[in-house]
Amino acid sequence: MPKWESDGRSVTLEICVESAAGARAAIAGGCDRIELCAALALGGLTPSAGLLASVLAVARPAGVPVHAMVRPRPGGFDYDADDLALAAAEARALVEGGAQGLVFGATGDGRLATEYLARWIETLGTERPALTLHRAIDVVDDPVAAVEQAVALGFGHILTSGGAASAMAGASVIARMAERADGRCEIIAGAGVNPGNAAALIEATGVGALHGSASVAADADVDDRFGFGPMPRRTSEDVVRQLRQVIDHKSNLGQL
């Protein structure tokens, strides 16, 4: 059994959150795994030690693993030496803080930055957490070929939209990525995943996992005259539950 395989459900539901409240909603709705980020409005950044601790306090009693984002800044994934050094330090701190997995990626010249990624993984030592290659793979020239590089590096999960703006738009590429992975790692379809398209996405790609924020607009906003930004979106227990129901129904149909 691959180390990433879920506990009996044929399709894993991963929900990205940025707060303990979001983790509670995701777990109550039936998620299998949490991806923890700060600043989801920016695509997700490395969470603080305090945020990690607060989410682990919710997730551990429920038996839900927490995989933490390692992204030292917003923008693209062509990192300089300072970015890369910070990403390595953040990764070690997250592991020490109890994260069961890390989510990371780095690119250069239209390809995965394999030499740096290998060094970054080496800094984690021999007792490594689960590793997810995030959507950095979506900006490389050939995401299907990059699956081989990710597997060789030791990533057990790959989060992807198939190089498109949404997972549905990239479904054909995601399907090719899943075929290339051939069970050696878990391909996670993410970007624009919702209860209305989840079943079609599973059918079109054959993936073993879906990823989404399952979020709705916050109940209140702030006066942004001072540039503080809008309130974060809120993880919806109802949307998570709807995703869970769609996935389980699809899985049950597949078992008939």
Rank of each mutant, 00 (worst) to 15 (best):
W4N: 03
W4H: 14
E5P: 05
D7F: 11
G8H: 11
S10M: 07
V11S: 02
C16D: 02
C16Y: 09
V17R: 10
S19M: 04
G22D: 00
R24W: 02
A26S: 05
A39G: 09
L40Y: 09
L42A: 13
G43C: 10
L45K: 00
S48Q: 07
G50V: 01
L52S: 05
A53T: 14
A53N: 13
V55H: 07
R60S: 08
A68R: 04
M69R: 02
V70P: 02
G76A: 09
Y79S: 10
Y79E: 04
D80C: 09
D83W: 01
L86M: 14
A91H: 09
L94G: 04
L94E: 04
V95C: 14
F104Y: 13
G105T: 06
T107S: 09
T107D: 03
G110W: 00
L112M: 08
T114V: 15
Y116D: 11
E122I: 00
T123V: 12
L124N: 05
L131W: 03
T132H: 06
D138A: 14
D138R: 10
D142I: 10
P143S: 02
P143F: 04
A146Y: 04
A146P: 14
G154K: 05
A164P: 08
A164W: 10
A164C: 13
S172C: 02
I174D: 01
A178D: 09
E179N: 13
R180H: 01
G183K: 12
I187Y: 09
A189Y: 00
P195F: 01
I202V: 15
G206V: 06
G208Y: 09
S213E: 13
A214C: 15
S215M: 00
A217E: 13
A217K: 10
D219Y: 07
G227K: 08
G229C: 10
Q245A: 15
L253Y: 05
L253V: 12
G254T: 03
